[in-house]
Write a protein that binds this DNA or RNA. Structure first.
Length: 755
DNA sequence: CATTATATATTTTTT
DNA sequence: ATATATAATG
């Protein structure tokens, strides 16, 4: 290929395979990119390459999995090809943008609200009640999930009803159209609509399809293995006239099947696009040989898999570690202490560490361990802040301002703070609104016409409507000023300020932070409206809130870890029932997805990898035996086992207190229920990789040499990490207690048993 | 209507 | 164990 432009800077540091992917010209391209093979880099370079070769930035569309990834790619492209603003976004953001831009052509109001799962379930509940099916057999969550799945498969309500066979599906078939009606009446879209409606429009409206196809001549999609049918439809229909579709993915990292993702999309790409070029990137640049080998051996247990060997030129590195703890608390503490020690030893910074787990619930014990040891951390869960009650309340006002039809937000805001408007009055108002086919806010404006509502409720509704009308006149204010105004006019701020409740003081601070968040948004996007602000919040993914600059330990779910990398990785609770999760048990394909999830977590690690499990784990307030994950058995032999729970005989660990509380039943748990799948290990098997690790070999009966007191025998060891104390009896000096971290001791040997 | 007490369900993972 | 939903009470 002869370039008439300067591509040297884009290609110099790439392998031939990577270069081929970057410089591929017209036509479909499938890049099978193994974990750590530099796929983000390739996709970014490719965009820059296209720009330098003369493709107009407006003709390029790049789809990433998170908004954060989209922002980063935008910045990198900007650096490689200055002055070019390419459209990079997630599928959902793309859908929202298309719907706002072309919605009116399709019959939608552009100021629609995006409903999250919470909102969705409330609508489902309402639709369920209205359907007359009140046997409470199926939860709104379950029905909502089924509707979501239907939309992902592009099934319309009648189509779904036609294919429904069992009672559950028939129920969903009844609720689905009612649900849709309520969404449209509220001028709202759920997450799935953002894909479903554009996909349908591209399918049905050839004029629009051809227009967008020509606009997005080059489409690039990252994490293609996790696209669903609706997303596939969008990609395909944007690539009919201009089939320059470039998809990047790794079937081994497909972890969203439960959300409707179809691994077939990537496996069948060559069939869908017969002239597709396929490039495989198998070279790993991220992990040590030890880590990559362990991950490869694990994933090789998946039967439904095209075999693929990942190779790396990186050094062998330390063996992968399997850590055994007494219980969840010890696990949390043990990991935090290890990290602290590693940082203290100067080997790593806090930000080099990440802790992953299968379920969010496990972050609780970690949180207290971090606080206890003064280790900085961030729990990467993007929406958590906006999901607090007080912030949701305030956001409900904003959503209602942006979209007066928004039922859910009206119901949330109308009596918070209390305005004397109760359930009965609201039922009457809803009946009136439904009858008149108007929104709830509009109905509140006509409260005088509703004879059944009187007294406090009537004045409350009238005042609420008047206040919202006044606020709506200020809709053009920058987001943060609008938030401040809402806080003031609604009385929400006053309510919190006048409260004597301590928690309300915190809530006040939180809504204050909401103003700050809005201000930051405004500064970053000066042109944007309140609708954009709300959209960004709703479509934010967990990692979008991650601060990767700060020096702290990152804590997140395995799902959130996709696409990231860290020098040191800990995976918690690698136990049967959690990883693989019990809900996947019995279904081989779901077990395989769990294995992929484990694989994703492992392959995030660059230098050190620790897979942890505990002998006892608390679940719903109950203590249960935990069996090490079958995945651990599938690892190669050269992993390193270390059982820190061995300390239980010497140390007064948290487990002892716990066991004492639980009583004799659990006293000899170690010898009964828990059947270690892992070969039994001796404490001496463990060689700390970091200096001053909590396991310094100090145990009762160990003979030590002290600088001042001479030879002594350890009589007690307690606590962990910096708090670890060691009691030593010195002949002639009596018993002394030291902080294990601080005291200088030389281990001389072990006293004979009984001595 | 609002507040409080009791019952009940809830836990996978997420745009 | 905790959070939410419903029922009972003021």
């Amino acid at each position: 290929m002869s370039e008439s432009f300067d591509a040297r800077g884009l290609l110099a540091d790439l392998t031939p395979d990577q270069q081929a992917a970057v410089t591929h010209g017209e036509g479909p391209l499938l890049i099978l990119a193994g974990a750590g093979s530099g796929k983000t880099r390739v996709i970014t370079r490719r965009v820059a390459y296209l720009l330098r070769s003369g493709v107009r930035p407006s003709n390029i569309l790049a789809i990433t999995f998170t908004n954060k990834a989209a922002g980063e790619m935008k910045n990198r492209v900007e650096k490689l090809a200055p002055g070019n603003r390419v459209w990079v976004s997630t599928f959902h953001s793309l859908g929202a943008r298309l719907l706002r831009q072309y919605g009116e052509r399709l019959g939608f109001d552009r100021n629609f609200t995006i409903y999250d799962m919470d909102d969705r379930n409330k609508i489902v509940k309402d639709a369920l009640e209205a359907s007359g099916i009140d046997n409470v057999k199926f939860s709104p969550e379950r029905i909502g999930g089924a509707i979501s799945k239907a939309k992902n498969q592009l099934l319309t309500p009648p189509e779904y009803a036609r294919t429904a066979t069992d009672f559950f599906q028939k129920t969903v078939g009844t609720v689905y159209p009612l649900y849709e009606k309520r969404l449209r009446a509220a001028n709202a879209m759920d997450f799935d609509d953002l894909l479903y409606l554009p996909a349908m429009a591209l399918k049905k409206n050839e004029e629009l399809r051809a227009e967008l196809d020509a606009r997005f001549k080059y489409v690039l999609i990252d994490e293609y293995q996790d696209t669903n049918s609706a997303q596939y439809e969008i990609a395909k229909r944007l690539s009919l006239n201009y089939d320059n579709l470039c998809v990047v993915g790794d079937p081994d990292q497909s972890i969203y099947k439960w959300r409707g993702s179809d691994i077939k999309n990537i496996l069948d790409f060559e069939r869908d696009f017969p002239n597709a070029r396929v490039i495989t990137l198998a070279q790993n640049y991220r992990s040590t040989k030890a880590i990559l080998h362990a991950a490869s051996v694990l994933i090789d247990h998946n039967k439904q898999r095209k075999k693929k060997d990942l190779v790396t030129d990186n050094p062998q590195g330390d063996p992968v570690n399997i850590l055994t703890f007494d219980n969840g608390l010890d696990e949390a503490e043990g990991v935090v202490v290890r990290i602290k020690e590693a940082v203290k030893a100067g080997a790593y910074k806090y930000r080099d560490h990440a802790i992953f787990m299968r379920i969010n619930a496990l972050t609780r014990s970690l949180e207290s361990a971090f606080v206890k040891h003064g280790v900085p951390f961030q729990i990467v869960k993007g929406l958590a802040f906006f999901e607090r009650k007080e912030n949701r309340d305030v956001l409900a006002y904003l959503r209602l301002l942006a979209n007066p039809q928004d039922t859910i937000s009206f119901l949330r805001a109308v009596n918070e703070p209390a305005r004397g408007i109760g359930k009965v009055s609201l039922d009457r108002l809803q009946a009136f609104a439904a009858d008149q086919e108007i929104g709830l806010l509009a109905a509140a404006g006509q409260v005088a016409r509703i004879t059944e509502i009187k007294g406090k409720a009537a004045t409350g509704l009238r005042d609420f409507h008047r206040m919202m009308t006044d606020l709506r006149a200020r809709l053009d204010l920058p987001p943060h000023e609008l938030v401040s105004l809402v806080l003031e006019k609604s009385g929400y701020e006053a309510m919190l300020r006048d409260s004597t409740d301590d928690e309300d003081a915190e809530r006040l601070a939180n809504v204050g932070e909401l103003v700050t968040a809005a201000k930051q948004f405004h500064e970053a996007n000066p042109e944007s409206t309140i609708t954009d602000f709300l959209e960004q919040i709703t479509l934010a993914s967990d990692v979008d809130g991650w601060d990767e600059q700060a020096d702290h330990v990152s804590v997140m779910t395995l799902h959130a870890s996709k696409g990231l990398e860290f020098p040191v990785v800990y995976v918690l609770a690698v136990e049967e029932g959690l990883l693989p999760h019990e809900r996947s048990m019995g279904r081989e394909d779901e077990i395989e997805e769990e294995r992929r999830l484990c694989f994703v977590g492992m392959t995030r690690a660059m230098k050190e990898l620790y897979l942890c499990h505990a002998r006892l784990r608390e679940f719903r307030g109950q203590l249960n035996y935990a069996i090490p994950s079958s995945f651990l058995q599938e690892l190669p032999r050269d992993v390193r086992y270390s059982d820190t729970s061995m300390a239980r005989n010497q140390a007064r660990s948290a487990a002892d207190e716990w066991r004492a509380k639980v009583g004799p039943a659990a006293k000899d748990w170690a010898d009964t229920g828990a059947r270690p799948v892992i070969p039994p290990k001796k404490p001496t098997d463990y060689k700390p990789t970091i200096p001053d690790a909590p396991e310094t070999g100090l145990a009762v009966g160990v003979l030590v040499q002290h600088e001042e007191f001479g030879l002594g025998t350890v009589t007690d060891v307690s606590g962990y990490g910096a708090l670890r104390r060691v009691k030593i009896r010195f002949p002639g000096h009596g018993e002394k207690t030291f902080v294990a971290d601080k005291v200088k001791l030389k281990i001389v040997g072990r006293k004979k048993a009984g001595g």
